[in-house]
C-alpha cells in the first residue's frame, strides 16, 4: 500500500521533470479536454437532469407539513445539487467514463509497446501522455459540473411544476432564497480536486499495465473503483476542512 502510494507520487513527479515543449503539451491538452468534454456531455446532462428531478419529487414527498412554505423545496434542491450532487455525482459518472478511457488507452499503449516507442525516441512519456490528460480533466470537470448544476436545477423545476408539487413562482423563489456564492466556489474546488484524482489514478493504473488485453480490462476496472473511492474520501476531507 505504502509502496503503491510511493510509486504513484514518483509517477506524478516524473511528469514534471524533463518536460516536452509547451506548445506541444498545450495542443495535446486541448485535444484531451475537447475529447473528454464531448464524450461526456451527454451522459452528464442526462444524469444531472434526472437527479434534479428526483431530488425535487422526493423532497416534495417528504415535506408534508403545511407550515413549511413550498418554496423550501426549490431551496433544498438548489442546496443539495450545488453543494453535493452536481460535483460529486458528476465526478463519479466521469470516473466511469473518463477514468476507464484513460486507463484503457494508456494500458493499450503500454502492452502494444507504443509507450516504449516514445521512450526510445527520447520523449518523456509521462510528460507527453499523462500531463495533458490530467490538465485536460482539470479544465473540463468544472465546466461539466457547472452544466450539471444548471441542468439539475432545471430538472427539478420541470419535475416540480409538471407534477404539480409546487408552482413555478414558488420554485424560483426558493432557488433565489438565501443564496451563498461561496457554495459555487466550493463545488468548483471539489470538481478540480476530483478531476485530478480521477485522471491521475487512472493514468497510473493504465501506465503500469503488464500483460495483455485481459490486463488492460482489469486496469480499467481498478482505475474506476479506486477513483470512486478517492472521490468519496476526498469529498469528506474537503467538506470537513473547507465548510
Amino acid at each position: 500500500m505504502v509502496k503503491v502510494f510511493g510509486q504513484y507520487l514518483l509517477f506524478l513527479q516524473s511528469m514534471l521533470v524533463r518536460k516536452e515543449r509547451v506548445r506541444v503539451l498545450w495542443n495535446r491538452t486541448l485535444d484531451e479536454a475537447v475529447s473528454i468534454g464531448i464524450d461526456s456531455v451527454f451522459i452528464v446532462s442526462i444524469v444531472a437532469a434526472f437527479i434534479g428531478a428526483v431530488t425535487c419529487v422526493q423532497i416534495a414527498y417528504n415535506l408534508t407539513n403545511p407550515l413549511i412554505p413550498k418554496a423550501t423545496i426549490g431551496f433544498m434542491v438548489r442546496e443539495m445539487t450545488i453543494l453535493e450532487l452536481a460535483p460529486t455525482i458528476t465526478s463519479i459518472v466521469l470516473a466511469g467514463k473518463v477514468g476507464s478511457s484513460i486507463a484503457g488507452g494508456l494500458g493499450t499503449m503500454r502492452i502494444t509497446e507504443q509507450i516504449d516507442a516514445l521512450e526510445v525516441m527520447g520523449i518523456n512519456s509521462t510528460s507527453y501522455l499523462v500531463f495533458p490528460r490530467i490538465l485536460g480533466a482539470i479544465i473540463t470537470f468544472p465546466l461539466l459540473v457547472i452544466l450539471a448544476m444548471v441542468l439539475s436545477i432545471l430538472g427539478g423545476y420541470l419535475a416540480g411544476t409538471l407534477s404539480g408539487a409546487l408552482s413555478a413562482q414558488e420554485y424560483i423563489e426558493g432557488i433565489r432564497d438565501a443564496f451563498i456564492p461561496y457554495n459555487i466556489t466550493f463545488a468548483l474546488i471539489k470538481s478540480v480536486v476530483f478531476a485530478f484524482l480521477v485522471s491521475s489514478i487512472s493514468a497510473y493504473r493504465g501506465f503500469f499495465t503488464e500483460g495483455g488485453a485481459l490486463e488492460v480490462g482489469a486496469s480499467s476496472t481498478t482505475a474506476v473503483t479506486h477513483s470512486i473511492i478517492a472521490i468519496l474520501v476526498g469529498d469528506f476531507v474537503l467538506a470537513y476542512t473547507l465548510l
Binding site: T112, A117, G122
Partner: peptide, 14 residues
C-alpha cells in the same frame, strides 16, 4: 537516443 530508430515486434504504431 535521438540517433536510435527502433522497429518493435508488434510494430507499435501510434
Amino acid at each position: 537516443r535521438k540517433q536510435i530508430g527502433m522497429l518493435f515486434q508488434a510494430s507499435a504504431l501510434f
